[in-house]
Amino acid sequence: MNFDNLKNIYQFAEHFQKEEYWQNLFQHQSSNPLPITNSPSIKNSNIFPVCDMYQKNNYFYIDMELPGMDSNKIQVNLLDNNIIEVKGYYRSLQENCAYYLKERQNLQFIKQIALPNRVEERNLQFSYKNGIYTIYFRQN
């Protein structure tokens, strides 16, 4: 995770720790709308989906948390400069129901990850098990 991503996470968390945020949230006066802030959103960052990249037995692995997704709807492209791009639409919204709690987001995502070595697109392999989408390839 790079410094900018860590900074975004800190700013996001810091916003919700402010007392004024919680006071405004629970005021039931229509004249006091919820505050509009410039805090970064997970939807608008390179945080989602969270992933790990590691090397084991001459293979590189990228594990991404994508529970409930159809793996056929995840697009993976190899860009110039050793960057892998993963695109998809994460949908958690259930139709014809009334939510009492809704924490999971519906969002379209594009995640770009810099690879440590050059790789040919034909060498990329994929698996999906228990909500973890894995991209793996042999080290050249």
Rank of each mutant, 00 (worst) to 15 (best):
I47M: 10
I113P: 03
D80Q: 15
L25D: 00
L34H: 15
L93I: 08
R118V: 08
Y54I: 01
H28W: 00
N96S: 08
T37K: 13
Q17L: 11
I62F: 07
K111A: 06
L107F: 02
P40S: 06
Q75S: 10
A114I: 09
L115A: 02
E95Q: 04
K87E: 15
N58C: 06
Y99P: 11
E103C: 07
M69K: 00
S45K: 01
D80S: 13
Y21G: 13
V119T: 02
E85F: 04
S92D: 08
E95D: 12
N58W: 07
I42P: 09
L25Y: 00
T37M: 09
Q17H: 12
D70I: 11
Q17I: 09
N32W: 02
S45I: 03
F60E: 03
I74M: 04
I62W: 07
Y99H: 09
N32L: 15
P49E: 10
K18V: 14
L115I: 09
P67N: 03
G68K: 04
I36L: 13
I74E: 12
Q125W: 04
I62K: 05
K18C: 04
N58I: 06
Y90T: 04
K87Q: 15
N57G: 02
K18Q: 15
Q27Y: 02
F16Q: 05
Y59K: 11
V50M: 14
R118D: 07
N24V: 02
R91V: 14
V86M: 09
G88F: 03
L93G: 08
Q105I: 14
S31R: 01
L124D: 00
G88T: 06
K111I: 05
M69A: 01
N38W: 01
R118K: 11
S41N: 13
R91I: 13
R122H: 11
V119F: 01
W22M: 11
E121G: 07
L101H: 08
P40G: 02
P67K: 03
S31L: 00
F26Q: 02
L101K: 08
N123M: 12
L78M: 10
K43M: 12
C51V: 06
Y89H: 14
F60G: 01
K87L: 14
F126Y: 15
L93T: 14
V119K: 02
S45T: 08
Q112V: 03
Y89P: 05
D70R: 13
R118I: 09
K102E: 15
F60R: 04
N123Y: 11
Y89I: 14
L34I: 06
L101R: 05
Q29A: 07
A114E: 03
D63N: 06
Q125I: 04
A114P: 03
P67A: 02
N58H: 13
S71N: 10
N96F: 07
E65K: 07
N77E: 15
L79K: 14
E19Q: 11
T37P: 04
